[in-house]
Each structure stands twice: as C-alpha cells, then as structure tokens.
Design a protein around this nucleic acid. Structure first.
Lengths: 332, 332
DNA sequence: TCTCTCCCAGAGAGCGCTCTCTTATAGAGA
DNA sequence: TCTCTATAAGAGAGCGCTCTCTGGGAGAGA
C-alpha cells in the first residue's frame, strides 16, 4: 500500500538511504554497479520521490505561479493574448523542468490568497500578468522576498522587474504608416487609461502625430469589441472628415470596422484602419486587418526566463521590452 | 532570518508547538485567552505555515492539476473553450480553497512528466481535458490510485469518470431545426473522428437524419477555420443542391460561410448554416450564427466538483453529461 | 610492509509540521 | 477529604527526504 519510500528502495537494493538519494539526484560519487542496482530497485518498485519531503529540506518547490487577472479570461476570451502568455510561460517552464501553477486573481480577496500561497513557500517565484492600474501585489511579494516578475510595465512606484512589449513604438509604427499613405485626419480609439497598454499606445499615437504636426482625435474604449463600435461612432460624429483610425486593439478595431461599414465608409478607401495585437481575427476580418503584432508567446517565455534567473539568485534587468512589428494587410 | 516557524511562534506566545498548531488549524480545544495570545504572535511574526512540512504529514497538498493538451491553446485560441474550462475549474477550486496547477501536455514526453508529477504526490487529483483519441494517461493515473476526472468522454475501454456535454443531442437539435425549417438536403462538416466531440456530433447528425429518412452528406474537418472552408468547397462540389449545413464547430462554420459567400450562396436564404460551440465569434459573424451552445464554464466547474468529491473519498457517478442548447440567430 | 591519501558508502541529524499520547489542573460527586 | 472524570496543554514521535560528517577499504608512495 502507498507509494514506496527511499527507505524501501534502499532496502530492496541493499544499500543505504543516502546512496539511493545520490542516485536519484545524479550525484557522480556512486560506483557504477551500485548505481545500476539502485536504478533497478527504483524501477521495480516504481519509486517516485515525494516532493513535499524533498522541498521541506531543499527549501525549493520547483514550481512557479502565474497570476492572471480573472477578467483576462473573459475580455480576451476570443483572442490569443491569454492562451499565448500561458503557452509561452508553460513552454519555458517545462524546458526548465519546473511546474506552472496558474492562479486567477478575481477579487481583492484572492490577492490575499495569492500572497499567503507564495509565502507558504508553495512556489519559488511568481509571475504577474497584465494587471489593471497600480496593483500592490507585485510590490508586496517582492518586499517579502518572493521573486517576482511582471508582465507589462507596472504602474506606480513599485520597483519590480518586468517584461513588456513596446507599445509606444508599435503605436508610432501604425501612425507613421498611415501618415506615409497620405492620411491627414488620423483618429485613435484608445484603450482604458488605467492599463499600461492603453496608456502607452495612446502616447505613441500622440508622439507620432506631434512630430508631424497633425492634431489628435481621440476616443477611449475598454478593449472590447462593443466599446470599439461605440468609440467609432463617437469619432465619426466628432470629425466626419477623418480618413484613418488607429485602434488600440484588434477586437475594438473589429467593432469599429463594423460601424464604418454600416455608415457606408469603405475600408481602406475612405477610412484606413490599423489595429493592435494581431490576433487571429485580424487575418480573417473583411478586409484583413493591418495591425501591430505583439509577441505574446515571446512575452510569456521571456517572463519565465527572467523569473527563473531571479529565483536562481542571478540579477536581472529592471525591464525587458520586446519589439512590436507592423503587419500590413488590406485595411490600411 | 527567513520565514518564522511554528516553533518560533510558540516561543513568542509562550506556549507549545502543539497549541499553535491547534490554533492554526482551528481546533476547538483551545482556551480563548491562549488562542488570542497565539493569534497575536502569529500576526506579529507574520507567520505562514510551510506547506511542504504540512503535506509531508497530512499526505495532502490541497492542490489539483488540470491537464490540457497543448494544441488546445492553439487550435482553440480564438474561442472560449480553453479559457472557459480554465475559468470554471479555477472558480470551483478557489471556492474550495484548493490550488490549481495547470499542465499543458504537448508531447508524449510530457505524459511522463505529468505522471511523475501526480505520483510525486504533488497534487491530490488530476483533471484531464479533451484529449485526442484513446489517451492512456487517465487510465494509468487512475490505476496508480490518483483521483482522476476527464473532461469529455474518454475513448477506449478505460473506466475513468468523466464530465461531458451532450454532443449527440446538440447535433440532433441542430439538424431537427434545419428539418423543421423545410431544409431537405442537409450536409454536415464533421470534426476530427479521433475526438469524441467530432464523433458524437456526427453521430447526432446521422441519427436525426436517419429518423427522417434523409440521406447524409458528410465532409470532415479538424475544427479549424481553414478546414471548414475546404470542407465546404468539397460539399458544394459533391452536392451543389444542398440547402443546409450543420457544422461541428463555429470556427469551421465561419470558414464555411466565407466560402458560401464567395460562391454566391446567400446565408440563410440559399444555404442555412448551424454551428456548434457558441463562441463569441458566432454572435458577431455576418449573419449572426445559429449554433449549439455548450456550457464550457459549467463543464470546468462540474469537473472540479466531481474531482473534489472523489479526492475526498466519496463515490461519484461514472459520467455527468451537461445539456446543450440551440441558440437561434440569423444563419438558419 | 606500512602509512597516507583518496574515494565512496553509511550514519544520523534535522527540515517544519501534525497528531497521538500523556500529564496537569480543576471541578464534581461521594 | 478523597477520588473520579473532564478538559486543555505539552511531549515527542515521526512524515520522507537531503546533506554533512564519519568510517572503511583500496591504491599509491615511501
């Protein structure tokens, strides 16, 4: 009954507990015949080391938590952002033979849960992805000595290392493309201004326009499709002459394009549209969308890599910023 | 330095280790003044129990694994299936104060990893979602005494409890709807025939047609949008007269509708289309899609509930089948 | 041949916690 | 007053593993 223990393997192989431990952990100081005997015993008994016992002494668990805001699974449900990050992190963790614990942070209560969890030494480190506003969690954990890496530049004064995509440059690329195509009245549908992605993309838009002396025309959405439609209607009302829109997410751009179609504006002939994210939808929309690609897998992978370094006691850069790229299709 | 231990809390409160343990675990046999003293010590020291030490003796970890095939994050990337299950499971686990460990099973190698992980007593049970073909993993784990619940009926002879949605009835509902609307040549684009969802939906289609003496017209896709387009072309070639298609997933239906449009067939006037899944895309396609809704959150939640019961030593039903529902929009 | 060194296996002390068993204290009944 | 029971706190034995320290045997140098 029960799984076999080190002790039993040792007995079965006729050696001491210590020797079995050495074999299991690949110590080089074990004579070949003994190693083989132990390995035979291990596989005969189907021995698997008890992780709890091991981490009790090593003080490591070899697993890491990925914290995602619960709404990420909802708002982003039909694009690749959420699965992309998860996949990237997961790949990198698997490669390092570490485990991934996923935690969805819904309420404020779950912040507490997560904090306790990390402090219970359940994980060797924590990744925190794309939070709203100035989330205190990363700072709190870091202060308690828990290795933490954020996905997306954290707002506020917390000095926590992060990995982000270059939202500002991405937005500038998009706007520059519109300018280069002779568009003169370039509006934007910005994302929520309590999220870094929302803020930075709007900044990029503004910077690029300022450099070319155009005036900005701004509406704000919340990254959902419907909010994109609402914002587009607003923009058309504000400036019926506009001939281009830079939209801070593909999903909003999709809503916006629907409105443009309804109002009889042709895309891109009358109004050019550039999105952001390059989710699958962008490729399949009508017309296929010109957009800014952000490497979500890459973001996840890089976050994982940085955290692994940090947890290994190495020092890591305060920030890693991944490049974004303009993908030109038909909408602009 | 480092986090405080039980011992230190005991010392600080002037009691024994056992008493602190009692307080932490909410034992009723502690006198009120002592309990308060201990609680004060706990909060003063910022004590958090070490999970590894605890589970070493309790033989529980209070965490559960959710295994997802890696391609789930890719193929299903732009719909709600993957995030839906994750969210459902996560909610139920959080409610039970358990942790969720997410494991993406990519290769055959990761099967091994997962097996070792579960056997290392890292988790108290395992959820396995939507695998291809007759996956040996659930059976193997179950045989080793690990509590397992599958999402989606497992193929093969393994007797592992599972939770599934009623694919057969859903498909029948869809086909019946088409019949009731006077459609006579009803084709189907089936899903992959090594997946239960693919098989059952095709079966439902066949059963319903057989009951009404119509012949079946079948093309097979792999649940991707492109495969839906390819299959639709095939169907139009096989039977140019067809006036309806039941498509086994919304994503494929989206591809199919694009082809219909290209070939000048109006939806639903010339060809009615019914999808399956009710992902967000269905609501936003043109025309909005009539489809079969499957409760992915519900599936996740029910899986979690069953597993929690199982892990608690209670007996659970071999199968739980959740109802599907026809959502009528404009495409049929 | 003897000693010194090297190498490899064993012994044993915990890691931080739970839980059973034991003991001390107090109150009740005779 | 003495015993019997009830109740609450303490003592201590592990849970399964790692890792340092110790010890024994073999080979090398003198």
């Amino acid at each position: 009954m029960g799984r076999p223990t080190l002790e039993q393997v040792a007995q079965h192989a006729g050696v001491s507990r210590a020797t079995v431990s050495r074999v299991v952990n690949g110590s080089p100081t074990v004579a070949e015949p003994i190693r083989q005997a132990v390995e035979r015993a291990i596989s005969e008994l189907g021995y698997v080391p008890n992780q709890a016992a091991r981490s009790l002494v090593t003080q490591r668990t070899d697993s890491f938590a990925l914290v995602l805001p619960e709404w990420a699974t909802r708002v982003f449900s039909d694009d690749q952002l959420f699965p992309g990050i998860v996949r990237g992190v997961s790949q990198e963790m698997e490669a390092a033979d570490k485990q991934l614990v996923l935690m969805l942070a819904g309420s404020a209560a779950s912040h507490d849960r997560i904090e306790r969890y990390a402090l219970a030494r359940h994980v060797d480190g924590v990744l925190i992805a794309s939070m709203h506003g100035a989330d205190p969690l990363p700072g709190t954990l870091a202060r308690m000595g828990v290795p933490v890496v954020c996905g997306g530049r954290p707002l506020g004064r917390t000095r926590v290392p992060y990995v982000d995509v270059d939202n500002v440059s991405g937005a500038r690329l998009a706007v520059r493309h519109l300018l280069e195509n002779g568009r003169t009245r370039i509006a934007t549908i910005a994302g929520p201004q309590d999220m870094v992605a929302g803020i930075d993309r709007l900044n990029g838009y503004r910077e690029e326009l300022r450099d070319s002396d155009r005036r900005s025309i701004v509406a704000v959405g919340d990254f959902t499709r419907d909010s994109g439609a609402v914002a587009m209607r607003q923009l058309l009302q504000d400036d019926p002459q506009l001939d281009a829109v830079f939209v801070a997410s593909d999903l909003m751009a999709n809503g916006a394009m629907k409105v443009l179609k309804e109002q009889g504006r042709r895309v891109p002939d009358d109004v050019a549209v550039v999105g952001f994210d390059d989710i699958e939808l962008a490729r399949y929309s009508d017309p296929p969308m010109t957009t800014v690609r952000q490497p979500m897998d890459g973001l996840g992978r890089e976050m994982a890599r940085q955290l692994l370094h940090l947890a290994a006691g190495e020092s890591i850069p305060d920030a890693v910023v991944l490049p974004t790229e303009l993908v030109i299709r038909a909408s602009a």
